[in-house]
Design a protein around this nucleic acid. Structure first.
Lengths: 183, 183, 183, 183
DNA sequence: TTTT
DNA sequence: TTTT
């Protein structure tokens, strides 16, 4: 993975809702987080102002499973990834663009914050909670992209469904992401 | 400027075109850069693939002036700022969202890269070229937001014009940004 | 503050001990934190290995006061600053070098993590806990460096004392840092 | 590679000298860079002050080879790695500590800046110059640490030599780093 | 020791 | 639309 340029996003924020985790036909997890970061300052009249920024964060595979298992609404988390803008069509067939923070296996870092009793873990299962997870590296690149499954399984046709509505379709990985890869 | 959360973007890339610099009625500069970062990798068949990501970068005041003076199409630049998503209406009155990297006086860093003959400077004027510019800090907060000018000068009505088309309006600062502040 | 180059450190870790806070003759706070970050991995025999890295973090003024008030041993914190290596003499008069992460008013960010009941606050005083503090900007540069006090107060001769021992002297700010500056 | 904490350093600077590249008995490259970052500002009397910070940067394997081939004194480079402090003994047997920025296969990023004629490449060989190199991921962890070679080749006894002098020994990787790994 |  |  060479590149000309650096594309890095670092966020520390709280989840606005439980992670959305979906599975590809091959059983790979894809998680979307909605993360809030906020700034507050005193305005000219001395009033405290606050502004919250919401971020869409996407991750895949093992990271997505960990997110689904340990994060919930309100959890505080550190994420590091790259900016990616995707084009999609809304109901009217118009082009729309959505920018997300994507954690891929080469740049993605996620760390749950506030370990101990104050941590952001779901339920009691605290094992591994509070541990950063670097996106596991892809060991042996596979020869099939996730969206173009050749097999006979019925496609879940996720993209098509979503392109009919006014919300962007779920992020898709731009790297190999296949059943046989152990993450 | 307290905050709950970290919202940081770091990019190193090349400008896709000369910076767009506009001026507010009060004479303050606003610059928009279009920055490319690209990744390349070998795909499964051994072919080299390349993917370019385009980023909108906005800066204000002195930083914007420096960008306008020293950067041009092709310039390589380091920028550090925050993610910000703005809502606007397109011609059809539909809500649209645009995500930008905003360099404000508290977090913004810009540095021109590749000094010397290979630098990204426009023309011969090299004074200060190749120098990083931290967004100058606001010394004395002023009492008027940039968009709500009270004076008698004719507004340049930039937002309105742009909300009639299908491109997002220019970014506006979310901090004080007034004539009397020396940046 | 122009610069040629970027010098940025981002840490998320836990304090190994309560912050050390000292005061200059002018009453300005200087805080030193000892921050642990650790990595764990499976070694070749499948054993889990862990390695902890310890970092010295220095901050000044308001940030130092906040650290002293809200952080304690074990607190989890995000810090962003710059790398700085200082030279000092040990008891034998030999040159020694110590590298620290310095949070100055232009680049420093500190954010307490794990808000709520799990937060890292000392005692009950939770006001402001869990809030990031950007190093306050210096409003009006003053004309006296912290170490060269002209007044009649007895110098606390901190550096001299410490240069007699085998521990590095406390970090000193490399920016204006004077009584009249409101931070 | 899980971790509790974030340990990240991002530098953009110029090399103070050509990279030092050495080879382990197994033929793996280890490179040390000396990187300058500088800040300049106007002091109280209006004089421009400048302060340069020097950083030791260590990298291994393929990254080290690229550094040795394409970087030279004066080259501008982006590096991203982690902070690591190593303990060593000087001639007098006293403990000394040296802090470095280490680019390991999991976090290391290096990008040569200032492509084109102003680039920092050595000689004419420009192939691949100006390309970022992420530290290649270790595909198959091997069972022998670099310093503990079992084979019959004569050790180059690098550490011992250096521990006799007052300069720190060369950095050593804290991860598997063996002949059979293709980087 | 670099760079501007 | 950039860059290599």
């Amino acid at each position: 993975m060479a590149s000309r340029g650096i594309n890095k996003v670092i966020l520390v924020g709280n989840l606005g809702q439980d992670p959305e985790v979906r599975y590809t036909p091959n059983g790979k997890a894809v998680a979307n987080l909605t993360l809030a970061t906020s700034e507050s300052w005193k305005d000219q009249s001395g009033q405290i102002q606050e502004k919250t920024e919401w971020h869409r964060v996407s991750m895949f595979g093992k990271l997505a499973e960990i997110a689904g298992e340990y994060l919930k609404k309100g959890s505080q988390v550190y994420v590091e990834g790259k900016l990616q803008t995707r084009k999609w069509q809304d109901q009217q067939g118009q082009d729309r663009y959505t920018t997300e923070i994507v954690l891929d296996p080469f740049n993605g870092v996620m760390q749950m914050l506030g370990g101990g009793s104050g941590g952001g873990n779901r339920g009691q299962s605290n094992d591994g909670g509070g541990y950063q997870q670097r996106a596991p590296q892809q060991q042996q690149p596979q020869y099939q992209q996730y969206p173009n499954q050749g097999g006979g399984q019925p496609q879940q046709s996720r993209p098509q469904q979503q392109s009919q509505q006014n919300n962007p379709p779920m992020a898709e990985p731009d790297f190999d992401f296949d059943d046989d890869i152990p993450f």
